[in-house]
């Protein structure tokens, strides 16, 4: 479960995030839309305890990330746009290392290959060095790492940009599976249609504020795009006062 309570972050005079209140339970996915600089990545960084909130708190599975940065990450998976792996190690070795890092030393090779398989990476590919991997393949390793450590909360920072449509589709399906299995997902993206596919809630951010909160079942894609573009245009920066 991911929860933000009055989560606020300023960098000097700049409000990067303004009183965010969200709660993403098991089996739920919040997809955040917004222009560059709207506060999506700051939100994710706050959940990762990479930055200290100016006020408010972020909780992962009930752990306050500031008070318990290590414990809060025990069942947390983070997948950035560019998944960085060690190029001289194979996919399997990278996975093994990442799993051990989070304290899971008990996985056998077969288990690890199973996670990779579930993430969409077959065994021959898993035994090759990562140096030759495509972006999509790297993300699959990251997903497998999340599976290996039995992550229940996912933070995804624009993982879909730069993927070809087939790869993006495959990736979204894996995430949807995870959600159905009970994962809580926070996805920052520019891709309105994938957000509709995956999200249980769609949030639109602007100038550090969550200005819209929509149920994807209640709008069509075209309507969502319209709302998104309108919210981008309307109001001066920082002045928009949407309901939190």
């Amino acid at each position: 479960m991911l929860e933000a309570r009055e989560l606020t972050k300023s960098f000097g005079d700049v409000r990067a995030l303004q009183s965010l209140n969200v709660r993403i339970g098991a089996g739920e996915a919040l997809c955040l839309l917004g222009a560059n600089g709207a506060g999506k990545t700051t939100t994710i960084n706050l959940f990762l305890a990479f930055v200290e909130p100016t006020s408010g708190s972020a909780l992962v599975n009930g752990h306050d990330v500031q008070l318990d940065p290590i414990g809060s990450k025990r069942h947390l998976a983070y997948i950035p746009e560019q998944v960085a792996l060690y190029p001289s190690l194979t996919g399997l070795e990278n996975l093994e290392f990442l799993a051990e890092l989070s304290g899971h030393r008990d996985h056998r090779t077969d288990d690890l290959l199973g996670f990779l398989e579930r993430a969409g990476l077959d065994a021959p590919a898993a035994l090759r060095r990562v140096a030759g991997y495509s972006k999509g393949m790297r993300q699959k390793v990251a997903i497998a790492a999340a599976l290996a450590r039995r992550a229940s909360a996912f933070l995804l920072d624009e993982p879909l940009s730069g993927l070809d449509p087939a790869a993006a589709n495959e990736f979204t399906e894996v995430l949807a599976d995870l959600r159905r299995d009970g994962a809580a997902i926070l996805l920052a993206t520019h891709d309105i249609f994938r957000a509709m596919e995956l999200g249980t809630t769609i949030g639109i951010m602007k100038s550090g504020e969550l200005v819209e909160r929509l149920d994807p079942g209640s709008v069509t894609g075209a309507e969502l795009e319209k709302i998104y573009l309108e919210s981008m245009r309307g109001g001066a920066a920082g002045a928009g006062g949407g309901p939190a």
Binding site: L48, K73, Q82, L98
Partner: peptide, 14 residues
């Protein structure tokens, strides 16, 4: 530089 550090920290590494 390669971004692995960020991921390792996200994975709870001290």
């Amino acid at each position: 530089e390669s971004g692995t550090l960020r991921q390792l920290l996200a994975a709870g590494m001290r």
